[in-house]
């Protein structure tokens, strides 16, 4: 009887132990899309995004800790202007040049951060470092929404988390100084992130 009771208690405790341990996740590249926006000639806001991203994430809701590492191939940027038409080059081609992202020399942009504030079980603030054009500077992401649960596309067999995060930085801090003024120095980031539990 006591053996049965012990076995039952152990069995009941196992899921709790599993939940409490830090869980690792792999970023879903199809539903994780980093967007950026700048002000053009002090008039409109021009938005662009990177078409590829990869990364890993850990999350321990019980301990209120987590970390994220993202890697973005900068050559995959798009602002919707890929066709040069009658011009010598398109805007996206110009953005890939040394005037801006210099993708041939610095093909990858990375972000490494740790969740420092939680809103209940959900990460609310991630403090980390962005590396762009070979320069590493602090960047804080504010998590706007966050949720975790069974993935309905797999009939609940997969577990995933996801949400949105925002940040802003000055591009000149990273050495991207071309026509600061006509194209705003401040760059706003908005990214969606989804990640599957490993």
């Amino acid at each position: 009887m006591s053996l049965k009771l012990t076995a039952s208690l152990v069995a009941a405790a196992l899921p709790l132990a599993a939940t409490a341990a830090p869980e690792s996740f792999t970023v879903d590249p199809y539903h994780s899309i980093p967007y950026f926006e700048v002000v053009h000639l002090n008039t409109s806001i021009i938005r662009g995004h990177f078409e590829k991203i990869s990364g890993k994430m850990t999350l321990d809701s019980a301990a209120k800790s987590g970390s994220i590492e993202l890697s973005i191939p900068t050559a995959t940027l798009s602002t919707g202007d890929n066709d040069k038409g009658s011009r010598p080059r398109s805007r996206d081609e110009h953005l890939r040049s040394p005037d801006f992202f210099n993708v041939a020399e610095f093909p990858t942009m990375t972000y490494k951060g740790k969740a420092t504030k939680f809103n209940g079980d959900h990460p609310a603030v991630i403090e980390g470092e962005l590396t762009l054009l070979g320069v590493t500077k602090p960047l804080t992401l504010t998590v706007e929404r966050w949720n975790c649960g069974p993935d309905p596309r797999s009939q609940g067999k997969r577990y995933f988390c996801g949400g949105n995060a925002t940040a802003s930085f000055k591009r000149s801090d990273f050495g991207m100084k071309f026509i600061v003024g006509p194209v705003s120095d401040e760059v706003k980031l908005w990214t969606s992130v989804e990640a599957f539990r490993d």
Partner: peptide
């Protein structure tokens, strides 16, 4: 260089 998408150069 400008035609080659590099205005700084």
């Amino acid at each position: 260089a400008i035609f080659g998408a590099a205005l700084t150069y």
